[in-house]
Design a protein around this nucleic acid. Structure first.
Lengths: 183, 183
DNA sequence: GTCTATAGTGGGATAGAC
DNA sequence: GTCTATCCCACTATAGAC
């Protein structure tokens, strides 16, 4: 069974996409690292966009789960905390994957607008839930701000010199996000 | 005096870079909108990178000013608030410009690593000042989080349906950023 | 499944006439 | 200052042999 090669391609592509950016990564570069030629990649993935879709799936699924969970929750402070924690978990679990969207949003849009739209829509829905029912403008802004704080999970590793454990990151960022909402 | 054409090119490029992304915007596209040919652009700017540099200058300068100001301040809660407010002002004043860096970081890195490095360095220095002297890991994370909140100034306009006045944005985001630092 | 070879496209940049 | 014409290059993607 040669899901092996398919997986290897996916892994290498994920790493390059998230560090160099989607558009800045050529299929030649990926092929080289895997130990194949460009043409052989096309046997496994029908296009660069198809490769991106395969890579991105877990993140979309993860967020969808959080969204489903949130939809069935009343908007209490405890539930807000819980939902934020779950969003943070998904982000930490898919760190490099989120990096693709932060490094080269424009490239993703150009290659696969529908993928990007899915992410934006889910971000909107999560922020909407966080803002609560019939939110004021300020509450909406604070909800967006809280999600931005969670995004700091990723830039953080680039900014900080020392390694930070996932547990500390989880604890501090969750509290910080709640603080951004003044909760 | 034909600084007119130069300025027109700069304006059009700024708009396209910040909406489509740097790499995704071709010089042909810019030229078309200005009403010139690609070749004519090169009379005014020697390369695509030179065009980017010219556009980006005000933002770099603005942040540098904030940094100079911060360096001479003691790290008190009032000063932190003041510095955050100034950072926010620079961001609001250069909204579309910051958009370039958020839409296509990878493209900017590829085209002009030094520009990107300047931005990162300044972000680091501002975050370092915000974190205070001899900061714990948690304090560093919170400082980064606070800066991320200010970045929400930009994504906000994309997420929200209604227009938000700059004054409300300033007020809410500043308080939210302070909240992220638990101040 | 992997290769070599190549088609086809679009980008940045230059030469030289006007 | 602006044009037309062109160069050169890198990329995605395909054709067809092995």
């Amino acid at each position: 069974m040669d899901g092996d090669t398919r997986d290897k391609i996916r892994e290498v592509a994920l790493e390059l996409f998230s560090t160099r950016g989607f558009d800045q990564t050529s299929l030649r570069e990926i092929a080289e690292r895997v130990g194949l030629t460009k043409a052989s990649l096309y046997y496994h993935y029908s296009s660069k966009q198809a490769l991106l879709s395969a890579i991105v799936a877990p993140l979309v699924d993860g967020w969808q789960e959080v969204l489903d969970f949130a939809s069935n929750q009343p908007h209490t402070p405890a539930a807000v905390r819980d939902v934020l924690a779950r969003i943070l978990d998904v982000m930490l679990d898919n760190r490099s994957l989120v990096g693709i969207f932060m490094r080269d949003p424009a490239g993703v849009v150009a290659a696969a607008e529908s993928i990007w739209q899915d992410m934006i829509d889910m971000g909107n829905q999560l922020a909407t839930w966080l803002a609560g029912p019939a939110p004021t403008t300020a509450e909406q802004l604070r909800a967006i701000a809280a999600m931005e704080v969670l995004g700091a999970a990723l830039s953080a590793s680039a900014y900080l010199k020392e390694e930070v454990s996932d547990e500390e990151m989880r604890e501090v960022l969750l509290d910080s996000a709640l603080g951004a909402m003044r909760l």
